[in-house]
Amino acid sequence: MNPEIKCWNCSNTFKKFSFFCSECNIIQKPLDLDSFKLFNLNYGFSINLKKLEYEYYALQKMLHPDKFINSTEKELLYAQIHSSNLNNAYNTLVNPVSRSNELLKCKGEKNKESETFNDLEVLNEVLDLQEVAENINCQKEKDNLINELNQTIEEDVEKLNNYFIEEQLLNAKKLTVKISYLEKLQKDIKNNVTFTN
């Protein structure tokens, strides 16, 4: 299914994308790959984050522009783009919401924000939580709510994982929206709730 990739330097051809040519070791031209493909991961929601971090570092150690100071301008530019792609992809995969959205995109589910505005169920749940947020008046309550949200998010992420396993993409999409609201709410509480008295 993949067309053959040709090394720009030695004309060696290979079937699967690789950062370096297996013949001449030269850095290859960056391709437009999704975050999963870039890290050679299966299209699944569950990811071993420790392993991902390790691979991210291992690849950056080979591809960061710092390693191409003595190289040609072309190689340096390629390194810069590879390194940037790795940064983007790593950040996308680390966060459950962006990972889910990326996965939905890879699976052909476009995520349009406007569609989700009508999901009253999600909206009501978030509104209830916000009501609670507005009525907190001491640090302890604030910490409790943040912890509570953490737990809800964790549970929802678990649920999200199941949806992906069962290929219930529409449900996955809805839940992703909810989690993103919860994360936003949590961040807002963290940064903006202050006590005047």
């Binding site: 978030v126 509104l127 916000q130 907190i136 609201y181 509480i189 903006n192 709730v193 202050t194």
Partner: peptide, 16 residues
């Protein structure tokens, strides 16, 4: 008033 808007856009809570 129903705070729907704030839930969607996100707002500051510093006026609590």
């Amino acid at each position: 008033k129903q705070k729907i808007k704030s839930a969607l856009i996100g707002k500051n809570y510093d006026k609590l």
